[in-house]
């Protein structure tokens, strides 16, 4: 279980997160929706301390971490128990696909090279990238890179995986294959928090949808409720622009 309470963050004078609280149960898949600038990415990055939130409390497993003054030990603990998938992949450009996945297993989890390699190969096979194990990131398409990015996160067997707009940088035709991989990961029962604009994905996979705007959580609920019976006017406005009424869903 991961719980955030009263998270606040400003970039200079601009308040990006204004007292955000969310709670994610074990095994739950939560999708965070919202327009750009709503603070959803900042929130996700704060969990992994890639962004330093100004204040708030995070409860994770038996830990309670104050965002105001996180200990180095706690930051490492969070990072070692969560995986992160980046919008623009963030693969290590000087390492092969296999080395990218093995890096954390060997350097962080101190597994032997053989063990790390067999784990990495298994995970790469699951995302359909085993054949490209010796390629470098620059030799792969965006969709392939993102699948490696997902494999790198999954291989470490984190308690939670955080996805930051994992398909936003992809060509439209590559979005599908990447979403399939994310769906497959979701089926393994791992806890996931996904920031995305893919509505059909959210509807298929999410246990719960959180709608954020202007640095606050506007509304949350089951995908069916949020998409078809939103309570808040702001949610309705946002959705009507993303899924136009009477449009064909292909």
């Amino acid at each position: 279980m991961i719980e955030l309470n009263g998270v606040k963050k400003s970039f200079g004078k601009q308040e990006v997160l204004k007292d955000v609280s969310i709670k994610v149960e074990d095994g739950e898949v939560v999708v965070i929706l919202g327009p750009s600038g709503s603070g959803k990415t900042t929130l996700l990055r704060s969990i992994n301390f890639l962004e330093k939130a100004d204040s708030g409390i995070m409860k994770f497993k038996d830990k309670e971490i104050n965002f105001k003054s996180p200990k180095k030990k706690d930051i490492l603990y969070m990072r070692r128990h969560t995986g992160f998938v980046f919008q623009n992949y963030g693969l290590f450009a000087h390492k092969t696909v296999l080395q990218n996945v093995m890096e954390g297993l060997v350097q962080v989890q101190k597994k032997s090279k053989q063990e790390a390699q067999s784990i990495a190969e298994e995970v790469l096979a699951n995302v359909g990238m085993l054949e490209k194990r010796d390629s470098y990131p620059a030799q792969l398409s965006g969709g392939q890179q993102q699948r490696v990015g997902i494999a790198r996160a999954v291989a470490l067997k984190p308690d939670v995986i955080l996805f930051d707009e994992p398909t936003s940088a992809l060509d439209p035709e590559l979005v599908g294959e990447t979403l399939e991989v994310i769906k497959a990961v979701a089926k393994t029962g791992i806890t996931m928090i996904v920031v995305t604009h893919e509505m059909s994905f959210a509807e298929d996979v999410a246990d719960r949808v959180i709608f954020m705007d202007g640095g606050v959580v506007v509304e949350e609920g089951k995908p069916g409720e949020i998409f078809y019976k939103p309570k808040e006017e702001r949610t309705r406005q946002f959705l009507s622009r993303i899924i136009p009424q009477d449009a064909y869903v292909i």
């Binding site: 980046f86 890096e103 790198r152």
Partner: peptide, 10 residues
């Protein structure tokens, strides 16, 4: 982002 990825894997 590569440095962030390094941090993110712990």
């Amino acid at each position: 982002v590569q440095a962030e990825a390094g941090y993110s894997i712990g």
